[in-house]
Design a protein around this nucleic acid. Sequence first.
DNA 1: TCTGATGATAAGCAATGCTGGTTATTATGA
DNA 2: TCATAATAACCAGCATTGCTTATCATCAGA
Lengths: 287, 287
Amino acid sequence: MDLRHLATLDAVATEGTFGKAADRLGYTQSAVSQQVAALEKAVGGAVFDRPGGPKPVRLTPLSEVVLAHGREVLARAQATEDAVERFKAGEGRVDIGTFQSVTNVILPTVVRQLLTEHPNADIRLFEEETDQPRADGLDLVFFDGRLHGDVEQVKILDDPYVLVTRPGQFPAGPVPLHALHGAAMVAQPPICDQARVERVYADAGVEPLIVFRTADNRGVLSMVRAGMGLAVVPRLALDLPTDLDTHELEEPGLSPREIYLAWQANRTLSPLAGRVIELTKQAAEQL
Amino acid sequence: MDLRHLATLDAVATEGTFGKAADRLGYTQSAVSQQVAALEKAVGGAVFDRPGGPKPVRLTPLSEVVLAHGREVLARAQATEDAVERFKAGEGRVDIGTFQSVTNVILPTVVRQLLTEHPNADIRLFEEETDQPRADGLDLVFFDGRLHGDVEQVKILDDPYVLVTRPGQFPAGPVPLHALHGAAMVAQPPICDQARVERVYADAGVEPLIVFRTADNRGVLSMVRAGMGLAVVPRLALDLPTDLDTHELEEPGLSPREIYLAWQANRTLSPLAGRVIELTKQAAEQL
DNA sequence: TCTGATGATAAGCAATGCTGGTTATTATGA
DNA sequence: TCATAATAACCAGCATTGCTTATCATCAGA
């Protein structure tokens, strides 16, 4: 049994004659006749009574059964094609792994543009604080630093670290790294890029005194503002404008945090995911 | 897009490799490869990521869409085939037109046997008192007398008329038709075969006095029992055994009522309807 | 009796679809 | 590093499918 057979059955049942059905379907009468014969062979019984002469054919009890179910089948098949079209036009779901800075700086722009283009897009964000985020199960993952494993990734932008102090605590201008030696500091927990930051400190012989750690960027800045100590944070972690002083760090020293967008290698991406990559690159260039 | 394509997609998605899917489907790996290619051409995108080497293929986002809908389509197609099988095995509905005598004497046997053979049969009876019952819309129609029009029919049985009287009203044995001349009688309304009966009376110069007409056979017999008059009814209209006297009518005179089973000519009958005809013939022979 | 509409059928032809064999690619283990 | 195994893709060959065209048989109505 074939979808085309069912479509032909439906057309003949609606039109009343083989010839009219053929016109509707773009076939010849002969083709319809052969298709009906094939369907009758498949179901093992006549589906039309042909009165002969210029009278319309009539359904048999068997064809009532086939037609009732067959129309369901055809409807589902049509629904499948529609769903494919919608998918290719950009409907569907996209799961994105992210983290604080990206959530606050890059993604708002991307999400807004994507929803403008595809109002029915189902965008879901997953912000999980882990050292090596799970890329499987997600379509795209933002991460600060390269991901290892079977992934493709593009560098979105360099996010330089800046020293954050209470107003007037340092004279304006760049600050050398060794100024942090012995200083009281507020910092992130040593996961993600923070681990690399502290390795750079150690390699330079700088040993700050970490007096408080929190994964919440606003918490870090609040404690700087409260006078607990200094902080070295990526520029994107700042809410700009801010009432705190910011100083570049002298070169060579702490290289910028690199933000990557990654996805499973060798996998076909959905149109939506592809568009997210494009929009993200554009958004990063605007910064 | 083809049902076979969807079935192949499903098989590959389940088995993980083209070769195993081919084994399940009874094809070669090459055939599956070509079918997947055809499906990918039809939907306009890859449905599998082939990692190469002995690793299973992976679904693409597109194929998630196709597969989710496609499995629905396949399920409906299977349901269609199942429904056809059930239909051919005798499930389904059969609508039968009937009238009092048949309802009480023949149909109980037929219905009981049919339900024994096909417990899921949906039998519906329509007892309408009309002169020319509508045969369209019904699969089968019982009628007393030939139907005119585009119908096929078989004679089920001859149902001779008998005279019904209060006990002892006539001496045992056949009664001549002219004994009814001027007699008080209870009768059916002059539709169906009753019209023919009264034409036979008139042709024989017999003019009974019809004192009550009712379409209800039990009503006729009740009034005979009550002494309102005689009645001439088909033997099948009697509840046997009865407390009333019955007499055959002398030949030649009133020929038996003929009961036919009819259906639309040149129409394919359902297996169930065909079986009803068979069982009806058998039941009639038992009488 | 003729005419027009219908479906069935046969022949022809292009396209489809399967098989069998081969090739290219990748992972695995020695 | 190399051989082996497993995989999908590719290609040629062949049968089948499925359409079109043309013709025929049937039936209703003028």
